[in-house]
């Protein structure tokens, strides 16, 4: 999957975005299977960018092209198809159902395509140390625990691109390493591209390119 950003700028940022941004109002190409790091301090529009690519926001100028098609032309069913089979995401706010157990949250994703077996889910949860927590409702978990559940959930489907928004912010060093390994394996298996938004450069992945949302800081 190739994602192209053409002169993209979110409407709320039109007045305040720096002219020197590496993304806004430029031509940016995320090639298939390419791993990209997106660096910016908070409040500069990282999450906005991911939401635009994922189709949740339409308040922007410019174009987003996925495999040469403008995402503005996608129907609701097109997006559903894309999110099931080609594009996966971990949002900063995780978007888990607080009233459902960890298992139910994972199964909601798993049952859509059944690309991953329950045994494989158990294996991932064991590695990340959340297996015992999965019977609790997500509302009673700590943020770090929820983050790990959300990461597992993002890997329960086929995808050609994985979008991660500060996925490790509440994990300790050991868990960051384990999570990074799981993500890396999953992406390599699927020959998928990766776009990770973070506050600064990280050492967990080998990136093909690094984008600065806000050059003045970099």
């Amino acid at each position: 999957m190739q994602i192209q950003l053409e002169h993209l700028i979110p409407e709320p940022l039109i007045e305040i975005a720096p002219k020197t941004s590496g993304v806004w109002l430029r031509q940016v190409v995320l090639e298939p299977s390419q791993w990209t790091q997106l660096v910016a301090p908070s409040g500069r529009g990282k999450s906005t960018l991911l939401n635009i690519i994922y189709g949740n926001r339409t308040d922007y100028q410019g174009q987003v092209w996925i495999d040469g098609k403008s995402t503005r032309s996608f129907s609701a069913d097109d997006w559903a198809q894309l999110r099931r089979e080609r594009l996966s995401v971990v949002f900063q706010d995780l978007r888990l159902f607080a009233d459902l157990s960890g298992w139910d949250n994972l199964l909601l994703k798993q049952q859509l395509t059944e690309t991953v077996t329950k045994e494989q889910i158990t294996e991932m949860a064991t590695q990340l140390g959340v297996l015992r927590l999965l019977d609790k409702t997500c509302g009673t978990m700590s943020y770090g625990e929820r983050q790990r559940v959300a990461i597992i959930r993002s890997l329960l489907q086929p995808f050609e691109y994985l979008l991660l928004d500060e996925p490790f912010s509440h994990l300790d060093e050991a868990n960051r390493q384990i999570a990074a390994n799981l993500i890396q394996q999953a992406c390599q298996q699927r020959k998928a591209g990766l776009l990770i938004a973070g506050l600064g450069a990280d050492k967990y992945f080998t990136y093909h390119q690094s984008l600065q949302l806000d050059e003045t800081n970099g």
Binding site: Y54, N56, A76, D77, W79, A80, Q81, L82, R83, R84, E85, V89, F91, R95, L96, F97, L108, K109, L112, Q157
Partner: peptide
């Protein structure tokens, strides 16, 4: 909100 999350997960609106 829940509907929004389900749509994020890839559930079809018609479904």
């Amino acid at each position: 909100v829940e509907i929004g999350v389900l749509l994020d997960l890839g559930y079809r609106p018609t479904e």
